[in-house]
Simulated scan of single mutants.
Amino acid sequence: MNLERAYSMYNFEEYDDPVLYDRENDSIIDDIVFLKKWAKRTRGKIIDLACGTGRATIPLARNGHQMIGVDVHKGMLEEARRKSTNLTLPIDFVLQDCTALNLNVKSSFIFSVGNSFQHFLTNEAQDGLIRSVSRHLEVGGLFIFDTRFPKEEELLQPSGEEFWRSYIDRATSQQVDVYTKSEYDALSQIQHYTTIRRLLDKHKEIINEKTTSIRLRYVFPKEMERLLSPYGLEIVNIYSDWEANPLTKSSDQMVYLCRKI
């Protein structure tokens, strides 16, 4: 079994319902706006790694860019293909391991969003991902990705159940309350998350509950420099969000803009 598949299987249950994933995430567009600006400056095929259901792939293809979307989760890719089937867009969705990418193409723009970088849980998996990016990126080409900033408040969350957010399920028009539990392993730098989704009726009584687990690896900024450098990736800038604000010690996120040298 390949590296990414072996370690991503820990996280598959969080993505086993692609339709639910889209319901909870399709309102996120700030990263897409950022990517569109950089895509205008590039030519040729653009590669979206860990593309999922095509949340970012499809909007860029709508803008006329030739896209390759890659993911290791078959169900997510099937949903991406279903969503784009009747749109006649220039997209090729590929089921591959991002740590051993083999697309037979070079790109001037590769990206991975949605904090997908955190799904690569081991040093070997991270190296495989960056090596794959470097092999498929033209000299001078850009690699953009994001990951959560490992500040103290992020890592040392209470181990008990905490309320996260509520939303209205479009399919049922019912409220869903989302709770999380987390435990950080400092030795592996992996956060173990449990997500509990509770569907409520009109009387705010729980009528259904779904629990999923996910593991996320955290990387510190200086550590990231050492990870990228051996593969010829120069950090051009690190932002705290998709509006290109500077990174600070209180940031929640790191957005990396890298260039192959």
Rank of each mutant, 00 (worst) to 15 (best):
Asn25Gln: 00
Asp127Glu: 14
Gly54Cys: 07
Arg215Phe: 08
Leu3Ala: 10
Glu205Val: 14
Pro150Tyr: 02
Asp185Asn: 15
Leu216His: 02
Glu209Arg: 12
Arg82Cys: 09
Val178Asp: 01
Glu225Gly: 03
Leu87Pro: 03
Phe117Cys: 03
Asn123Trp: 06
Val178Cys: 08
Ile29Leu: 08
Leu156Gly: 02
Ala56Trp: 00
Phe111Lys: 03
Pro230Asn: 05
Pro150Ser: 07
Leu87Gln: 09
Phe149Arg: 06
Val236Ser: 14
Asp252Gln: 09
Lys210Val: 15
Tyr239Pro: 04
Met224Gly: 02
Asp127Val: 13
Phe93Ser: 04
Phe109His: 02
Asn11Tyr: 06
Trp242Asp: 09
Gly64Ser: 08
Ile214Phe: 00
Ser108Gln: 06
Pro90Glu: 10
Ala171Gly: 11
Pro158Tyr: 10
Asn25Ser: 02
Lys260Ala: 07
Glu225Pro: 00
Asn2Glu: 15
Val219His: 02
Asn245Tyr: 14
Leu3Cys: 09
Pro158Lys: 10
Gln118Asp: 02
Arg23Phe: 09
Ile207Asp: 06
Arg82Glu: 13
Val94Phe: 00
Glu162Ser: 12
Arg197Lys: 15
Lys260Glu: 04
Ser240Gln: 14
Ile235Thr: 12
Tyr231Phe: 15
Val133Lys: 02
Gly64Val: 09
Lys249Gln: 04
Val113Tyr: 00
Phe149Val: 04
Phe117Gln: 03
Arg131Pro: 01
Glu78Gln: 15
Asp92Arg: 13
Leu101Tyr: 01
Phe12Arg: 12
Val105Glu: 01
Gly75Phe: 03
Leu121Pro: 03
Gly64Cys: 11
Leu142Gln: 08
Glu161Cys: 07
Leu77Glu: 02
Ile168Glu: 05
Gly232Lys: 04
Lys210Ile: 15
Arg215Met: 10
Gly128Asn: 05
Arg82Pro: 04
Ser251Tyr: 03
Gly54Phe: 06
Asp30Leu: 11
His192Glu: 13
Cys51Arg: 01
Lys222Ser: 13
Tyr184Arg: 08
Cys51Asn: 01
Gln66Asn: 10
Tyr256Phe: 15
Tyr256Asn: 12
Ser108Ala: 09
Trp164Ile: 11
Gly54Leu: 09
Met254Phe: 04
Arg198Cys: 13
Ile110Tyr: 04
Phe93Cys: 04
Gly64Asp: 10
Asp252Trp: 10
Gln253Arg: 11
Arg197Gly: 06
Lys36Val: 06
Leu101Gln: 01
Lys40Cys: 14
Ser27Leu: 05
Arg23Thr: 05
Ser173Met: 12
Asn237Ser: 15
Val72Ser: 04
Leu60Gly: 11
Ser229Trp: 07
Arg215His: 08
Phe220Ala: 06
Lys222Trp: 08
Ile29Ala: 10
Asn86Trp: 11
Pro18Asn: 07
Arg217Thr: 04
Gly54Ser: 08
His192Val: 14
Leu35Cys: 06
Tyr7Gln: 09
Leu228Met: 09
Gly75Arg: 06
Lys45Ala: 14
Thr53His: 05
Lys204His: 12
Phe220Gln: 05
Thr195Asn: 11
Asp17Met: 12
Ala6Val: 08
Gly141Asn: 06
Glu162Met: 14
Val94Pro: 00
Pro150Gln: 06
Arg81Glu: 13
Gly114Pro: 00
Val105Phe: 00
Phe111Asp: 03
Thr88Trp: 11
